[in-house]
Design a binder for these strands. Structure first.
Lengths: 121, 121
DNA sequence: CGATTACATCGACACACGTCAATATCTACT
DNA sequence: AGTAGATATTGACGTGTGTCGATGTAATCG
């Protein structure tokens, strides 16, 4: 089961791959399987609403953002925002933690670094 | 006209944006328009075949690859490969140059750097 | 000129994806 | 318990996208 809810209550990433697929694109050959895995990660970034959400979460002063504060800024319905947050979470780009009534989202920096490394020389 | 064919015969990028939208995601706020532009760029990377093509072109010893050598490795039909190369080109990630019978593709490093910077801290 | 090869474009199809209204689930509070 | 608020899930709908066969276009060669 990927979305573990441990003692901390943090729902985290499926942890599919880390440095597995992620050699720099311009360095080493990329087989079909690795390219599929990588494409999944970039798909999560390939939507304007998700980029806005990621931006809102990442620029939050405390490092995390309440889901309740993410609906209005992006101008989409609550289910749509919830859907996009799920995509970001399953891509390992963000983490979510339920505290009481609210769910707090924070970015997973290592994941962004992985993708950054893929694009490096 | 975006795809200029100048004296060099190089078909290059639509040049939509460069450092326009591209402040680090975790630094500055991202408006709707910028997020749409950025999403377009990531969409080009969000496909396994395109990642393989980009990889094949980038890892070519001379820095450029003939389209004729890209069909067999990815295991797709010639029209499909041609389509994906077009997407990469219109995203500004690769350049193409027709020399005689063949078309040669090369990566546009600055474009990858732009995306890399967006993901930086 | 006619034939051949390389690449792009077109048309069609199946499937994936973004979106929302309605509903379910869970928590807090009275 | 009952109500209210926050979030997730479901179901449906329209649009976008990857794929291929067929065809078009351009360049080379005999």
């Amino acid at each position: 089961m990927s979305k573990s809810t441990g003692s901390t209550g943090v729902r985290d990433l499926p942890v599919l791959d880390l440095a597995d697929c992620c050699a720099p694109l311009r360095r080493e050959p990329l087989d079909a399987e690795a390219s599929a895995t990588l494409a999944e990660a970039f798909k999560a970034l390939a939507d304007p609403v998700r980029l806005q959400l990621l931006n809102l979460i990442a620029t939050a002063e405390t490092g995390e953002a309440c889901a309740c504060d993410l609906v209005e800024p992006v101008g989409k319905s609550q289910p749509t925002v919830s859907h996009h947050l799920k995509v970001l979470r399953e891509a390992g780009l963000v983490q979510s933690q339920k505290r009481g009534t609210w769910v707090w989202y924070s970015v997973v920096p290592s994941r962004l670094e992985d993708l950054r490394r893929v694009l490096s020389r």
